[in-house]
Design a protein around this nucleic acid. Structure first.
Lengths: 233, 233
DNA sequence: CAGTGGTCTAGACCACGGT
DNA sequence: CCGTGGTCTAGACCACTGT
């Protein structure tokens, strides 16, 4: 029998993954403990630990103290989406970025937004509507409500110079957030801004962020028909 | 000056994150190297390394040998989406799962599918169309092409008993895949299956998977209007 | 209670990549 | 060249949890 002597946690991880793929260890199976694996692979337990921890984070293994390490029943891989600043998203496509402010006014947000942020109707927020452009063409429509109590300084911004998106990312680190992806039919206003037909299918991304317990902002980005968000598995 | 003596990599990570949030270390700044931090925090360099590695994976830091560790300019957080088997997705909502096979036949996939899989027109694939149900109501429409050369055994499956989705996940681990999210207007056939109006905005998820260099399957899942994919940041 | 993973340590060597 | 992160090691103790 071969005793390859795998040093380096990557090699150990590769070998374990190979055994899983080869079905030496089938989904649901208990695999040997760290000490035994270290002996077999000819390396320190720390190294095996690093490898197994990595595979567990990647979703291939499930580990529990005392219970041991099992091959995950369904390799539920996590798709990781990068959520960049729109400017960078546009420039990464090799296009020129611009943005246009459509509206900016104080007001009471609709119930859906209030409940997302956990605010009552008495709290006025700043409503900002803008259009992001790539090479002059509509790229995304932004509908945003900002809590100016949590974010002092925002009210004084000249949003024609700098997008709310960019300023907030640079200046207000959030501690918690929620992201919702969906499809929605274009309303008349959004359709006009994006230059598409009313009722067209828009890819929609809603994000709510908090700083500790205080809401920062709720924002909905609507992308014109055909927009795709791609990620590797 | 306080010298808290932080043992445990979590505590070190928390402290570093706190300094970033507090702007002690601003975006783009170089932070002290591991040896110095270990000295300051009163722990081993290994512990600091673990903490910084964690923060780098989470997107807060950028690390390069010799160049040192910098606070990331834009805290581009990665949203991680769980992509489960649909059955589990449905049952997690407390609903009863069912599926119905709509079509199953061999044929040549459309150009878009062929190019995604990197196949020429001479290779016939198996085309499977099915509907996933939650408590009897349409939950998702599935349009799938399977390469039966890469996946022997699939052709013999009784797809009325078991969904293609479930079988593939259990039996054909993929090594690489692509996930595309978008919105699309419902075609007549999809609209009828989902019980919505033609042209309605559908949330659409396309996935292509390979086993090494061989394509396994291309699948498009269409969710009825109102469907949302939610994740924490 | 006892087995298993989780973590810390102190020290060492290595690999990359600015200067 | 040489500073910085990347990793390995051997050993130790701890924390959780199944039996």
């Amino acid at each position: 029998m071969t005793a390859p002597v795998l040093t380096s946690w990557q090699a150990v991880a590769d070998e374990v993954l190979a055994r899983i793929r080869r079905r030496d260890w089938a989904p649901g199976d208990l695999i040997p403990n760290e000490v035994d694996l270290a002996g077999e692979m000819g390396c320190a337990r720390t190294t095996v630990n690093r490898a197994l921890r990595h595979l567990a984070e990647a979703g291939y293994l499930e580990r529990r103290r005392k219970a041991g390490t099992r091959v995950a029943l369904n390799p539920v891989r996590r798709a990781t989406l990068r959520i960049p600043v729109i400017r960078e998203e546009v420039e990464a496509r090799g296009a020129r970025y611009d943005h246009a402010l459509i509206r900016r006014e104080e007001g009471t947000p609709p119930l859906a937004v209030r409940s997302h942020l956990g605010l009552g109707p008495e709290r006025p927020l700043l409503h900002v509507v803008a259009l992001h452009l790539a090479d002059g063409a509509p790229y995304a429509h932004e509908d945003r409500w900002v809590d100016t109590e949590t974010v002092p300084g925002f009210a004084a911004l000249d949003l024609t110079q700098q997008s709310a998106n960019a300023w907030l990312v640079q200046n207000v680190p959030y501690t918690r957030g929620t992201l919702t992806l969906s499809a929605a039919a274009a309303g008349p206003e959004t359709a006009q801004a994006l230059g598409c037909a009313p009722g067209a299918a828009l890819f929609t991304l809603e994000r709510t962020t908090w700083k500790e317990a205080h809401p920062i902002t709720w924002v909905r980005l609507s992308y014109p028909p055909g927009h795709r968000l791609v990620t590797e598995l």
